[in-house]
Design a protein around this nucleic acid. Structure first.
Length: 308
DNA sequence: ATCCAGGCTCCTG
DNA sequence: CAGGAGCATGGA
């Protein structure tokens, strides 16, 4: 069965830009974009359902949220709408962000290009964490390959409408793995150890994402970096893409260092500190800035190599 | 072959 | 406490 609900958005809201980001995002393996629709499995009310999000084509740019599966209840729809609201930031007022960006001339083009775009969250914080660890110090195409292998071997799938949708493995599952289970999937020993150790911490509740929500970014970073395998970059990435922290800036990120290096005309990668310096005027919204930069980089590579 | 890729840990000084 | 060596792996 299939039921829909309408989700109001706070303008300006550019669903099209969010879709474009997702469509080109290497981490988006569980998520799909097709025919202007975002499709992904979601766990609601203790079971998996298929979520579809599309532009509602209604005044004000509302979204249409659809659930597909067995016995979809009204409460499920409400939960799905809440989830979509969180993942896409539909309820957030971005005018303060635009105002902050426009105060600096160098950010004006960025603000124009990304108008109505919000940081798009990865399906759940655990997935965001593991994706960040996978992405440490390897090229992103290879990282996507590693993630796909993880899903294929340990994630299972959801069958709906004659199709199967891959699921990201639960922490309890990855927590039971041994290093030797991951090595054949081309994970390095240290990456395998980090992923298993962090999965155990999440499964045991030692690492509790909910308790991080609402903490000041530096405090959350401090708590996260206490875990083996989480450095500052990973903590900031998780906060931004997994937990929706709007001020988290992974300044050590290679892509951000490159784009800031160009911005400053350095002829080299900017240092982490230089990235933080350029971002300083946007304090409070530095997560937006990071995401807009990533979006820019992605658009650029998309222009260079149009999708097949 | 060599260098790089969306870093982390651990050890120096 | 800042800085850097060493690490581990596949891809260009």
């Amino acid at each position: 069965m299939r039921r829909s609900v309408r989700l109001a958005v706070t303008p300006p809201f550019a669903f099209g830009l969010a879709l474009r980001y997702l469509a080109a995002s290497p981490s988006a393996i569980v998520e799909e974009v097709q025919d202007g629709e975002h499709v992904r499995p979601v766990r609601i009310g203790g079971r998996w359902l298929l979520l579809r999000v599309r532009d509602g084509a209604a005044p004000g740019g509302a979204l249409q949220v659809t659930l597909e599966g067995r016995r979809v209840r009204t409460a499920d729809l409400e939960a799905a709408a809440d989830l979509v609201s969180r993942l896409f930031g539909t309820a957030e007022d971005v005018t303060p962000v635009l105002r902050a960006l426009r105060r600096s001339p160098r950010f004006v083009p960025l603000a124009r290009r990304c108008r109505g775009l919000r940081p798009v969250l990865i399906g759940n914080p655990f997935e965001a964490l593991i994706w960040a660890v996978i992405g440490q110090q390897i090229n992103i195409a290879f990282a996507a390959k590693l993630k796909a292998a993880l899903l294929e071997h340990f994630g299972g799938s959801l069958a709906v409408g004659g199709r199967r949708y891959p699921l990201f493995p639960a922490p309890e599952h990855l927590a039971r793995l041994r290093r030797a289970d991951l090595r054949p999937l081309q994970y390095s020993r240290q990456k395998a150890d980090y992923i298993i150790g962090l999965s155990q911490a999440v499964a045991r509740g030692t690492l509790d994402f909910a308790s991080l929500a609402g903490l000041p970014t530096p405090e959350a970073v401090a708590r996260l970096t206490a875990f083996r395998g989480i450095g500052r970059w990973t903590a900031e990435y998780l906060l931004l893409r997994g937990l929706g922290d709007r001020d988290a800036l992974p300044a050590a990120d290679g892509g951000l260092r490159r784009i800031v290096g160009e911005e400053l005309g350095l002829g080299r990668l900017a240092t982490e500190e230089e990235v933080r310096g350029v971002a300083a005027p946007i304090a409070g919204w530095r997560g937006y800035l990071a995401f807009y930069w990533w979006f820019t980089l992605q658009e650029r590579s998309r222009d260079r190599a149009p999708a097949a």
